[in-house]
Write a protein that binds this DNA or RNA. Structure first.
Length: 715
DNA sequence: GGGCCTCGAGATCA
DNA sequence: CTCGAGGCCC
C-alpha cells in the first residue's frame, strides 16, 4: 500500500549504515584536528562530516519521523558544528544546518515570477462528478481504465522551492499562480525542507523546482496555541491560518519558533538528467529519494471505483491524520496521458480535487442588507448571528438575488443552516422551518438603490435587480475605481476601498483618471493620511503608469470581461485601438467570446462617458505595452508549453523558414526575440547555429532542435 | 468571506 | 501603544 512502500524502511537502514561509517571518520577528524588545530583541510573535513551527519539525523527525524538518536545527542552535534563554524567562519556554507535561521529580518518580501505557473485544481464535491471526470478522460484518451496517482489534499499553503545545482536557493508562495512572494528565509527554517538535495553529485539536476504544501501539524498547532495563551498573546483559529501567518513573518527568528512542515506533491521546471518521464508516481518516488517528505497516504489506483474507495478511506482516517486535509487529489499517473489531456485556462485537465463535504451549522438570520456591486447589481446579503463553521467565524453570506430568497423561502428572523468548506464562500443552505418564529418578516427587494436613490430595475429576462444610476451612483463609481486599481488591473498599491470612499466623498476624484491628478497636499488633508502614506500612494500610481494591454482592458471594468477574457482580447488584437473598433461579429470570432461578452464590449465603447475616461487616462500619461505586430489569430487553446514563452531562433531550419517558424510560435502564444537572455525560455537551433547557441549553453537555456519545436507546436 | 501580518497614523504618556 | 487599512492566503 502506498507509493512509498518500503522506500522509507530501506532508506532508514541505508542511512543507519551510512551513519556508522561517518561516525568513524568523525572521530578520526576530531582527533587529528586536536593534534593539528591549524590544518585547514582537517577543519573543512570535520565541518563537512558534521553537516552530513546532522542532516541525516534531521532527515530521519523530520521526514522519516523515525529518529535514531536522542535529541540531546543531536543538540551536542549541532553545537559542535556551530562552535567550529564560529571559530573558522570560512567554513560556513549557505546550506549548513546552522544557517536555517537567518539573522536579520526582512524589510519586505520581494516578488518572484514562477518559471512555470502554479496552477490550481478544479474542485468536485460529489461522486457523480468524479465518475464524470473519469469517463470524460477515458473517452479522450480512448482507454478503458485510467491509472491515477492519488493523495490527500493538504489544507495549507502551496509553495515552490528552487534548487540550483542541488542547493535550495529560492522558495516562493503561490501568489496568483504567475508571481508569488519570496519567503526563502522563512522556508529555510522548516526542518523537513532539505537545504541540499540528498542524493550524490552524479545525477543531480542543475535546476529543480519542487512544489508542495506548507502546513502546521495538528499537534504543533495545539502546542503553539498553548504557548500563545500562556504568554497572553492571541491564539490562532486553525492550523492553516497559523501556518500562513508564520510564513508571512518578516522576521525568520519568529518563523523558526513556529514549527512548520512541508510535503511535496510535484515538480515544476527542471533541467538535467534523471527525472522520470513516465509516471507521476515515479516523479514522487524520485523527489522522495532527494529527501523531500511525501505523504504516506499517496497511492496509485485504477478506474473511478477505486478513486471512490480511496476517497472513503481517507475520509474515514481524516481525524487520525497528523494534519488537516480538505479532500483528496486525483492525478492521471501517466505523464504521456497528462500531456495529451492538457489544460483548460489555469487548471490541468488531468487532475481534480475531490473535496470533503462542507461543514454545516444552524444559526440565526438577523437581517438582510442590500449591497451595490460594480455593475450596479443589488445583492441581498444575509447578516448572521456569528457562528464558527469550517474553521472560521461566519457573520454574513450572500443570498445572490430575489429569486434565490424566494426559492429558499428565507425570512428575517429565521434559523438557517449555514455551510462553509475551507476556501468556499459561506452559503445559506436552507431554512429550518420548525424553528420559524411568529415575528419572522418577509424581505422586500428595495425599489430604489440604497446608495444613490436611483430607481432599481429588473430587466425582463434577468435574475438581478440593477441600480439605474450608472456611474453617477457613488457606489458604482467607487467600485469602478477600486476595480481599476486592483492587483490584476493597474495594480496600484495603497489604494483600498476606504481610501476610495474618502476620495469620492470629498469629490477629490470622480473617475479612475482623476487618480493621476492627485497631489500630496490634497491627500494629506484627508483623515488618517500622513505624509508617508501619501507619497507611497503617489509613487505607486506613478510606477504603474505603463500597464500591459491586458491589464488595462481588465482595469476598465467592462461588464463580463474578467482577467482571462481581457488577456485573450489583448492577445488577439494586440492594440487598444483595434479592440475599440471591433464590432460584435468580429469579437465573436475569439475563442470563448459569445454574443453576450461581445455585446458588452461594444456597448461599453459606445458609451460616451467611458470614451471620455479612456481619453483622459491617456492624456494623464497612461502608456500601454501593446504588441501591435500580433496578427488577429485564433487562440490555440492554451498551448501551455508555448503560451507566454520566449523563443530565439538560430541556424537554418530544414522544413520551416525563419518566418514560418516565427509565425507558428506566435500563433501558439509564444514570442520570438532576437537575442538570448536569461528571460529566454527556448533556443531553437537549426543547422549551423550562431553564437546564440553558445550563449544558450552558458545561460542554461533549453535548446530545441527542429523536430522538438514541431512537436511542441503540435500540442 | 474570513484570518493573518505589516505598516502608518494618531493617541497617550513621559 | 492601539487601531484601521491594505495585502495576501485559502
Amino acid at each position: 500500500m502506498g507509493i512509498l512502500e518500503n522506500i522509507s524502511k530501506n532508506t532508514r537502514t541505508e542511512l543507519i549504515s551510512k551513519l556508522k561509517s561517518s561516525q568513524e571518520s568523525l572521530e578520526k577528524f576530531r582527533k587529528d584536528l586536536k593534534k593539528n588545530p591549524s590544518n585547514v583541510q582537517l577543519q573543512t573535513d570535520l565541518s563537512e562530516i558534521l553537516r552530513k551527519i546532522i542532516e541525516i539525523h534531521n532527515y530521519m527525524y523530520s521526514v522519516l519521523d523515525a529518529p535514531s538518536i536522542p535529541d540531546s545527542e543531536y543538540d551536542r552535534l549541532f553545537l559542535e558544528l556551530q562552535r567550529l563554524e564560529h571559530r573558522y567562519p570560512h567554513l560556513v556554507t549557505s546550506h549548513s544546518p546552522t544557517q536555517r535561521v537567518g539573522a536579520t529580518p526582512l524589510i519586505k518580501f520581494s516578488q518572484v515570477t514562477h518559471r512555470l505557473p502554479m496552477l490550481s485544481l478544479s474542485n468536485e464535491f460529489d461522486m457523480a462528478s468524479v465518475e464524470a471526470f473519469d469517463r470524460r478522460l477515458g473517452e479522450k484518451l480512448k482507454v478503458d481504465k485510467i491509472e491515477y496517482e492519488v493523495e490527500p489534499k493538504f489544507d495549507g499553503l502551496a509553495v515552490s522551492l528552487c534548487y540550483e545545482n542541488g542547493i535550495f536557493t529560492t522558495g516562493a508562495t503561490r501568489g496568483d499562480g504567475e508571481t508569488g512572494e519570496d519567503v526563502t528565509s522563512n522556508l529555510r527554517t522548516v526542518k523537513s525542507i532539505p537545504l541540499c538535495l540528498r542524493t550524490g553529485i552524479n545525477n543531480r539536476p542543475t535546476y529543480l523546482e519542487v512544489r508542495g504544501e506548507i502546513l502546521m501539524l495538528k499537534d504543533d498547532f495545539k502546542k503553539l496555541n498553548q504557548y500563545q495563551r500562556k504568554k497572553n498573546e492571541k491564539v490562532f483559529v486553525n492550523p492553516r491560518n497559523a501556518a500562513a501567518g508564520s510564513l508571512r513573518q518578516l522576521d525568520p527568528q519568529i518563523a523558526a519558533t513556529r514549527r512548520l512542515t512541508f510535503f511535496a506533491y510535484g515538480i515544476g521546471e527542471y533541467k538535467g538528467e534523471g527525472i522520470p518521464h513516465d509516471t507521476h508516481s515515479n516523479v514522487m518516488r524520485y523527489i522522495a529519494s532527494y529527501g523531500f517528505p511525501i505523504a504516506k497516504e499517496c497511492d496509485v489506483v485504477c478506474g473511478s471505483a477505486e478513486l471512490l474507495i480511496y476517497y472513503k478511506k481517507i475520509q474515514d482516517s481524516r481525524e487520525q491524520l497528523p494534519y488537516d486535509i480538505d479532500g483528496v487529489v486525483y492525478k492521471v499517473n501517466s505523464i504521456a496521458q497528462q500531456e495529451k489531456l492538457g489544460f483548460i485556462s489555469r487548471a490541468p485537465r488531468f487532475a481534480i480535487a475531490h473535496k470533503f463535504p462542507a461543514q454545516e451549522v444552524i444559526t440565526e438570520l438577523l437581517g438582510i442588507d442590500v449591497q451595490v456591486g460594480r455593475t450596479g447589481v443589488l445583492t441581498p446579503v444575509a447578516k448572521l448571528k456569528p457562528v464558527f463553521v469550517g474553521g472560521a467565524t461566519v457573520t454574513q453570506a450572500t443570498l445572490h438575488n430575489e429569486d434565490e430568497i424566494k426559492r429558499k423561502n428565507v425570512m428575517i428572523g429565521d434559523s438557517v443552516i449555514v455551510r462553509r468548506a475551507g476556501d468556499v464562500i459561506p452559503e445559506v443552505v436552507e431554512v429550518v422551518m420548525e424553528r420559524r418564529p411568529d415575528n419572522a418578516s418577509q424581505f422586500i427587494m428595495p425599489y430604489w438603490c440604497p446608495e444613490c436613490g436611483a430607481k432599481a430595475v429588473r430587466m425582463p429576462n434577468e435574475a438581478v435587480v440593477r441600480c439605474s444610476g450608472g456611474l453617477l451612483c457613488p457606489a458604482q463609481k467607487k467600485q469602478a475605481i477600486i476595480h481599476f486599481a486592483s492587483r490584476r488591473g493597474m495594480d496600484i498599491e495603497g489604494l483600498g476601498d476606504k481610501l476610495v470612499d474618502q476620495l469620492v466623498d470629498t469629490a477629490s476624484i470622480r473617475t479612475p483618471a482623476d487618480l493621476y491628478l492627485l497631489d500630496e497636499d490634497k491627500l494629506i488633508s484627508l483623515p488618517r493620511m500622513g505624509k508617508k502614506s501619501a507619497s507611497n500612494l503617489l509613487e505607486s500610481l506613478r510606477k504603474r503608469k505603463k500597464p500591459t494591454l491586458a491589464q488595462f482592458i481588465y482595469a476598465l471594468g467592462i461588464p463580463n470581461v474578467g482577467v482571462i477574457t481581457a488577456r485573450e482580447l489583448a492577445r488577439y488584437y494586440g492594440s487598444f485601438s483595434r479592440l475599440q473598433e471591433a464590432d460584435v461579429e468580429a469579437l465573436q470570432k475569439i475563442q470563448d467570446v459569445g454574443l453576450i461578452v461581445a455585446q458588452s464590449i461594444v456597448d461599453f465603447f459606445a458609451e460616451r462617458h467611458n470614451i471620455d475616461i479612456i481619453k483622459k487616462l491617456f492624456s494623464v500619461g497612461i502608456e500601454l505595452k501593446e504588441n501591435i505586430d500580433v496578427q488577429q489569430t485564433q487562440s490555440s487553446d492554451n498551448n501551455n508549453l508555448i503560451t507566454g514563452k520566449t523563443f530565439v531562433l538560430t541556424g537554418t531550419l530544414s522544413n520551416l523558414s525563419r518566418e514560418d517558424a516565427k509565425e507558428r510560435i506566435e500563433n501558439s502564444g509564444g514570442k520570438v526575440t532576437g537575442s538570448v537572455s536569461i528571460k529566454t525560455n527556448f533556443v531553437v537551433a537549426g543547422v549551423d547555429p550562431g553564437g546564440k547557441y553558445n550563449k544558450a549553453l552558458e545561460l542554461g537555456v533549453d535548446i530545441l532542435n527542429e523536430a522538438e519545436l514541431l512537436e511542441l507546436l503540435q500540442h
